[in-house]
Design a protein around this nucleic acid. Structure first.
Lengths: 101, 101
DNA sequence: GGTGTTGTTCGAGAGTTGTCGAACAAGGGT
DNA sequence: ACCCTTGTTCGACAACTCTCGAACAACACC
């Protein structure tokens, strides 16, 4: 079961947007944008590990993250450079905290 | 049944992203970004008028568009300025045509 | 008033998605 | 070898979404 990390040119923009259009996944992406590489287990946002694994898979298959094994853990990181190159401004616009008013 | 066009501060970013994460809706938004105000009926992207009406409702309720009546038609326009202010770079990133490679 | 155009709303159906617990797989430690 | 930790995968279930045709509403025009 290889990671299946697609080339960004092969991912439709709607798939990228759909991947970001979920609260849990957006929190994961925010954490990755701030903290760099992180283990899957470090994202405890009130969902089970099965659900977390599901969300990380969605992010990976939408081209947003890369995953590599490290012992019993898996380290996930954001494909920031590639994304900024293909969708300049998107991550910034989405990750910047919004003033509530 | 008033239009229900929310204040942008009341719409979670995930709702905006979800609204954009559909092919038909993205085509509508692209058309609006290029052509300015347009009647609902001008968006013929191979879906029935019921489906079109549904998508326009999703866009409106996500804060992406405003609608006003004009005779028997309804004119739709993109809330470009507001969106650019709250999510700078988002629309540009999403609407710019992507090189396939 | 009647007719036609333009949209919306109402089910309904098929498909997708988010969530979970349980079972499984792969490593590390003792 | 054994166990514990870390993740993935497998159903399953509820909720949502996209789609449609049909019925309805609003307006213009003859």
């Amino acid at each position: 079961m290889e990671p299946h990390e697609p080339d960004l040119t092969a991912v439709p923009v709607t798939a990228v947007l759909a991947a970001l259009a979920d609260d849990v996944r957006l929190q994961i992406v925010r954490a990755l944008a701030e903290g760099g590489e992180a283990a899957c287990g470090s994202f405890d946002f009130g969902v089970s590990k099965a659900t977390r694994s599901h969300h990380l898979k969605v992010l990976r298959e939408a081209g947003l993250t890369r995953t590599r094994a490290a012992g019993t853990s898996r380290l996930v990181r954001l494909r920031r450079d590639e994304l900024d190159q293909r969708y300049p401004g998107l991550l910034d616009a989405v990750l910047t905290p919004r003033p509530p008013a």
